[in-house]
């Protein structure tokens, strides 16, 4: 039975190759269409403009840059997203405290469950 992720475009922004690669593999196994992964703020901002993105996984720290600008752009377009981060809550500005967050090191099922939940709440009419 195909999961909720099947056929959905999922943007992945993560600067660490192995982590990005793990996420891509896990999403591909769920038959999701992976957008990216990309490692830089500029590339992430570009891809965030794409049509059809269902949800996004955002690393908070991109080679020293913050990915919060990508988060803002996605939020403006109504695309739900999850932070994947090594930071604790207190290191994030208050405005982003409500965003679902997966702490590194993460387990793949946790990431998939978080995305599933984002998409489930989107499905509600």
């Amino acid at each position: 039975m195909p999961g909720r992720l099947a056929g959905k475009q999922i943007l992945v922004v993560e600067d660490e190759y192995f982590i990005a690669s793990d996420l891509r593999r896990a999403l591909a196994a769920e038959e999701a269409l992976v957008i990216g992964p990309v490692s830089s703020l500029a590339a992430g901002l570009d891809l965030a403009e794409r049509e059809g993105i269902a949800a996004a996984l955002l690393d908070v720290n991109l080679e020293g840059d913050s990915s919060l600008a990508i988060a803002d752009r996605l939020a403006a377009r109504g695309v739900p997203f999850v932070f994947v981060t090594g930071y604790d809550d207190w290191a994030l500005p208050d405005a982003y405290r409500h965003v679902p967050r997966i702490a590194k090191p993460f387990a793949v099922p946790t990431v998939l469950a978080a995305l599933d939940q984002l998409l489930a709440s989107e499905d509600v009419p």
Binding site: F18, I19, G86, K104
Partner: peptide
């Protein structure tokens, strides 16, 4: 402190990926 936390958690994630591969 935030940087250190970030680095430690990142490297653990990398180590796990390297192990899986």
């Amino acid at each position: 402190v935030a940087e250190l936390q970030h680095r430690v958690r990142n490297i653990l994630t990398v180590v796990r990926s390297v192990f899986a591969r």
